[in-house]
Design a protein around this nucleic acid. Structure first.
Length: 293
DNA sequence: TTTATTAAGGCCT
DNA sequence: AGGCCTTAATAAA
């Protein structure tokens, strides 16, 4: 089957599962300050915790817990970044018990401490490299704590994409280092861990346009390359490939690789999966279940 | 003193 | 063994 035919095929399921996932996202998004537990959410929605966990994970590639963390982190960036709150105040505002939690959140998801993030990465070394990916050239950025950024570039737009990402840490020292980012790229996009029979799982909240883009992404089988143009055509706006690129690679998407067996040599790594998380939407894909266990 | 980071220890799988 | 949590000591500004 051609990619175009695949994109045209409507596999978007509707029904109880989707509705459940939608409600979970809504609940967590609106009520993150209470840091609801799995049990809290499940009982509110009238399902068992395990049903909630499984259904949500299957659809999104993220556990409800991970999604809550992504939402919390998103607000945390705003509070300590734009609003400049002290870490303690921000922690309490977010419903966390203290700055220790906030620290964990930033180290695991942003590969930097909350203080480093707050200061715009002052004095921080950020290495970057460009690597091929199923969504075009990927800009991969890493600190010595791990992957700190990932974006996608249109052909010829590599420098612009890098600059766009670099704005997140105006105080950081950028170092071109293709070799050190290659390992991350390999882990994130390791196609041999993908199951070709399973489509991308995408759960989304966004503008109409973004939702259409993500629905198109949902139809791309794992490990199958597509292009911005293909997606643009699939959503009926063949000239919108640039906007598609923006929707895929920029702000609204939180992107998480749930699991992978390739562990770093450094035992200090708090995770072999890293995510950059932004806004309230997320794109996750399932790696083969076999590699997760 | 205020703020940020890291440690200690407990509680769950 | 490790994730996640609270509390609190220690470091830095």
């Amino acid at each position: 089957m051609t990619i175009q035919a695949t994109l045209d095929r409507d596999i978007t399921p509707v029904g109880a599962d989707y509705e459940l996932v939608r409600q979970v996202i809504e609940r967590i998004t609106l009520d993150f300050q209470s840091q609801p537990s799995l049990e809290d959410i499940a009982s509110d929605l009238g399902v068992t915790p395990s049903k909630l966990q499984k259904t949500f994970s299957r659809w999104s590639g993220l556990t409800p817990k991970a999604f809550l963390q992504a939402v919390t982190l998103d607000h945390a960036r705003r509070l300590i970044g734009a609003e400049g709150l002290p870490l303690l105040d921000a922690s309490l505002e977010l419903g966390l018990s203290g700055p220790g939690r906030l620290h964990d959140l930033f180290v695991t998801h942003e590969a930097m401490s909350p203080g480093e993030f707050k200061s715009g990465g002052a004095g921080l070394a950020v290495r970057y490299g460009f690597h091929p990916s199923p969504f075009g050239t990927a800009v991969v950025m890493a600190t010595d704590r791990g992957l700190c950024g990932l974006a996608f570039a249109d052909p010829g737009g590599e420098a612009a994409a890098l600059e766009d990402m670099a704005r997140r840490w105006p105080g950081a020292r950028l170092i071109a280092d293709q070799e050190s980012t290659a390992g991350y790229a390999r882990r994130v996009f390791s196609t041999d861990a993908w199951n070709r029979d399973q489509p991308l799982r995408v759960v989304l909240i966004g503008t109409d346009f973004q939702v259409r883009v993500w629905e198109a992404l949902l139809r791309i089988p794992l490990g199958t390359a597509s292009t911005y143009s293909d997606v643009a055509r699939a959503i009926g706006q063949p000239t919108a490939s640039r906007a598609v690129g923006a929707a895929v690679g920029r702000n609204p998407i939180s992107f998480v690789v749930p699991c992978h067996r390739a562990l770093g040599k450094s035992g200090a790594l708090t995770g072999y999966h890293w995510g950059i998380t932004r806004k309230r939407a997320m794109l996750g894909w399932e790696t083969g279940q076999l590699t997760c266990s």
